[in-house]
């Protein structure tokens, strides 16, 4: 259904939807301008209108100097922009982007992400952006649908998806997460006391309607926890490894029941590791309100 019209029954060439293909699929026997004008030409638009729209599109994607080049004579990023312009030229109601940035190198991808955002705002067209890059999904979207095996598992804002994952797959797929199993002891006002399998009892929030009894899984994002002195932590374990990432350090801690827990902590200058030694027993403090009970 699109704007109240069932388009699944229409053949592809009658749907008001255009696609940016993963491989771009630019026509090698046409120039940049001919590629961009192809959709309009197929719709039977008058030549003057096509020329005007092509010029507008060339300007939008900043490819004016290249308009008479063959598509084999421009770089990958430029091909990407031509593919975008070609798909946008017929003013589709919805633009599908099938992993459009996966063929670009990191730096170019970052530039194109910003470019895409700009184009989306300027044209006001709905973009449906397929990606396997969770970071890309989080930074570019207004709404995310996480799919697995052909089913939509959760639809929501990037915030919702990241901070309030509904199911284990979503929590695991988007970003890094710690899963701790335990049993609910008591609940009140959406806050449950959970006795973790590794020993201690912690507070975790649960969505309405979630079971507040029996065995549950608690998720804690690595950046919502901090290493601390053994006695101050909510949970404890042995520091197994510390991986330095520049802006922050990832601490891999083995809990008493054998579960691995990762803590991501910002570096505070000085010598890395913030004074924690591998092999030492450490405590982990969890930011208030960040532990969540998951629907399994």
């Amino acid at each position: 259904m699109l704007y109240g019209e069932d388009i699944a029954v229409l053949p592809p060439y009658k749907r008001p939807v255009n696609t940016v293909f993963q491989s771009y699929a630019l026509f090698p026997h046409m120039t940049v301008a001919q590629n961009i004008g192809f959709g309009l030409e197929m719709q039977g638009k008058p030549k003057a209108e096509i020329d005007a729209r092509v010029a507008e599109m060339l300007k939008l994607v900043r490819m004016e100097p290249m308009k008479d080049r063959k598509t084999s004579q421009i770089s990958g990023g430029q091909q990407q922009r031509v593919a975008l312009a070609r798909a946008l030229a017929p003013k589709p109601k919805v633009l599908l982007l099938d992993e459009p940035l996966s063929a670009l190198d990191y730096k170019l991808r970052k530039d194109m992400q910003i470019e895409l955002k700009r184009l989306q705002t300027e044209t006001g067209i709905t973009f449906i952006f397929v990606t396997h890059d969770q970071e890309e999904a989080l930074t570019m979207s207004d709404r995310i649908a996480v799919m697995s095996k052909g089913k939509i598992l959760q639809v929501g804002s990037p915030h919702d998806i990241y901070d309030r994952p509904a199911v284990r797959f979503v929590a695991d797929f988007i970003g890094e997460t710690n899963f701790l199993s335990g049993a609910v002891k008591s609940s009140a006002k959406g806050i449950s006391k959970v006795k973790l399998d590794c020993g201690p009892e912690i507070a975790a929030t649960a969505d309405d309607g979630l079971k507040s009894q029996g065995k549950v899984t608690v998720v804690i994002r690595p950046e919502h926890s901090n290493l601390c002195a053994l006695k101050q932590g909510h949970i404890k374990g042995v520091l197994e490894n510390a991986v330095y990432f520049g802006t922050d350090t990832h601490y891999h801690v083995k809990l008493d029941d054998g579960t691995h827990f990762m803590v991501r902590q910002q570096n505070e200058g000085g010598s890395g590791q913030n004074g924690f030694k591998v092999g030492a027993a450490v405590g982990i403090s969890i930011d208030e309100g960040t532990a969540r009970i998951l629907r399994d």
Binding site: P11, P12, Y13, K14, V17, N18, T19, F21, A25, L26, F27, F38, G39, M42, Q43, R86, A87, P90
Partner: peptide, 8 residues
């Protein structure tokens, strides 16, 4: 496929 997508 791209051709069909562009209304050909």
């Amino acid at each position: 496929e791209a051709g069909y997508d562009l209304y050909a």
